[in-house]
């Protein structure tokens, strides 16, 4: 153990280089209500932190103090704030700081502050490229972490003109969806990449993009029909491009019926059939088909939609009975 590590075990109150600071205990009334029962180590670190905030000191030892405090409580946003300002005031190496963050982010994956601090650093460093690899490492630990995904989306938005950064993104997200087709964070990211950020050069041919996305999504539905992430994405493609759902009528229909045991394997990219062993009928397919009927608008179609909604309300999706009845009411009202 070197001296530095040994010293970290000491309280700040015991460290000679902090003897010039008068610690400030947290304000408490004599009989506080709902106090947190702090450990001596945490109480010591925060007592010294309050003293530093009061004096406004910006120094190397402040970086040490805030780091130790953050390790005790990574959600201490004031420590992060003060640390950031101190880094700037001292013109400290932000690269070194980023390396520290590589360790802390993995440790405290669910904390807002580690991710936001990283944004602040990358905004100044302007080195987005290595971040992609780092994010992938984090996603291996937690593949649906909200902060990790929104950080990746921030990175790609903030450096939207960086073609090198964006080059492999579609392939990346294809792989993540391939690993777990029910990972909704990944589907959302695909939407972000393909539609959310506007049109990138090389993808101006929107008809081609839409066709590609429809095929990709239908293939994934065919492999795992009862996956709301894929159905939501299918709706997303059509809505964003203002295309009618009826474009998918032929594709959707087999999913609304019980599985046909006589189905033969056919390769139809536009309309891939349900895979063998699929659990059918699929609620999301019935809903989709009902939406197609509702949109058609004539009485005959509305009644067909109503029948589908009734089957959802009474048989296939009873927890949402109230909602399906609401859809029926709305459709019948607008038809009259």
């Amino acid at each position: 153990m070197n001296t530095e590590q040994k010293q970290e075990k000491l309280l700040f109150a015991e460290r000679p280089e902090w003897s010039d600071v008068d610690p400030i205990p947290q304000y408490e009334t004599s009989t506080p209500i709902a106090p947190i029962l702090y450990t001596p180590q945490y109480k010591d670190a925060t007592d010294y932190f309050r003293a530093i905030v009061k004096s406004g000191e910006r120094s190397e030892r402040v970086l040490q103090l805030t780091e130790e405090l953050i390790r005790l409580n990574p959600a201490h946003y004031t420590a992060w704030q003060y640390r950031y300002e101190t880094l700037l005031a001292l013109s400290s190496s932000l690269q070194t700081e980023l390396e520290l963050m590589n360790e802390l982010a993995i440790k405290y994956l669910k904390t807002y502050q580690v991710w936001h601090h990283r944004r602040l650093l990358i905004t100044l460093l302007r080195t987005p490229q290595p971040e992609l690899q780092f994010i992938e490492t984090c996603l291996r630990v937690d593949s649906k972490n909200y902060h990790t995904w929104s950080y990746r989306q921030w990175l790609l938005s903030h450096f939207v003109d960086d073609d090198d950064l964006w080059r492999g993104e579609l392939e990346f997200i294809e792989n993540v969806i391939g690993d777990d087709v029910r990972n909704n964070s990944a589907w959302h990211h695909r939407y972000f990449v393909v539609f959310g950020c506007g049109v990138r050069s090389g993808s101006e041919d929107r008809a081609r993009i839409v066709r590609r996305e429809l095929i990709f999504t239908k293939q994934n539905i065919s492999l795992a029909p009862n996956n709301p992430s894929a159905w939501n994405y299918l709706r997303g493609i059509l809505d964003y491009n203002r295309l009618p759902y009826s474009l998918c009528t032929r594709f959707v229909k087999p999913y609304t019926l019980p599985l046909d045991p006589n189905t033969v394997d056919i390769v139809d990219l536009e309309n891939p059939p349900p895979s063998r062993g699929a659990e059918l009928p699929c609620v999301y397919a019935i809903e989709f088909l009902a939406d197609i009927h509702e949109k058609a608008g004539d009485k005959d179609n509305i009644l067909k939609g109503v029948d589908l909604w009734k089957s959802l309300a009474n048989e296939h999706d009873t927890i949402r009975k109230k909602y399906w009845e609401h859809r029926i009411r709305e459709a019948l009202q607008s038809a009259t």
């Binding site: 709902a34 947190i36 029962l37 702090y38 450990t39 409580n73």
Partner: peptide
């Protein structure tokens, strides 16, 4: 129990959310 006796040390992670602890209670 939480209000009168205080929060055990595992609530330390909520030290920057003290108003929340009180509001929730």
């Amino acid at each position: 129990r939480n209000m009168m006796q205080g929060f055990p040390a595992r609530y330390l992670s909520q030290d920057a959310s003290q108003p929340w602890l009180l509001f929730w209670a």
